[in-house]
Amino acid sequence: MANFTLNGKSVSLEVDPQTPLLWVLREHLGLTGTKFGCGIAQCGACTVHLNGTAARTCVLPVLAAEGGDIVTIEGLAENDDHPLQQAWVEEQVPQCGYCQSGQIMQAANFLKHTPNPTDEQITAAMAGNLCRCMAYVRIHRAVKRAAAIASERDTAQVMGQQTEATAATAGVGTFDPRATADAVSHSAAEETSHGKV
């Protein structure tokens, strides 16, 4: 018997305790927003929050989550209006979209601890999440935008006002996605940086 809290509700189910949490979520509980990518915790598609920390569920036996508090993409925000989800739409981030639940969950955990991130901090926090479509420019921009949305919402709450964020999507033309890549070089030995948060 496995017991934990999932998106605010307590869950108990009969399951082989060695089953990775990913498959408990997907197969036993029907929450398929969390994805299977590499199976070795290297791509980040399976990221959820466990006790307030981003966790890779493809290698995590459900036993290790016993009694824990789990949040998946489905439970990130009521009405799917988390600042990151709003920013993801504003910046039109997803292409195939398969990695995006994991990207958002990774970013949500990062922003919780780093509400005003620098470009370099965003890159470092997100470098462990593979996007095979390589929508990295927009993922980066959206994380930054989400931080601004969260801050606007906080201000609005304080002021007792509703704010409406202006939609801005990249159109045709010239843009400079960001400057942080200047500090980055290409190396064959980059495995060590994967997964850093």
């Binding site: 470098a127 095979r132 990295y136 890549a181």
Partner: peptide, 18 residues
């Protein structure tokens, strides 16, 4: 798998002007 096969990650994205 990703240990040996390593598609581009965010920190390897160059500046682009398109």
């Amino acid at each position: 798998n990703l240990g040996a096969y390593q598609p581009l990650r965010m920190h390897q994205v160059p500046q682009m002007d398109l």
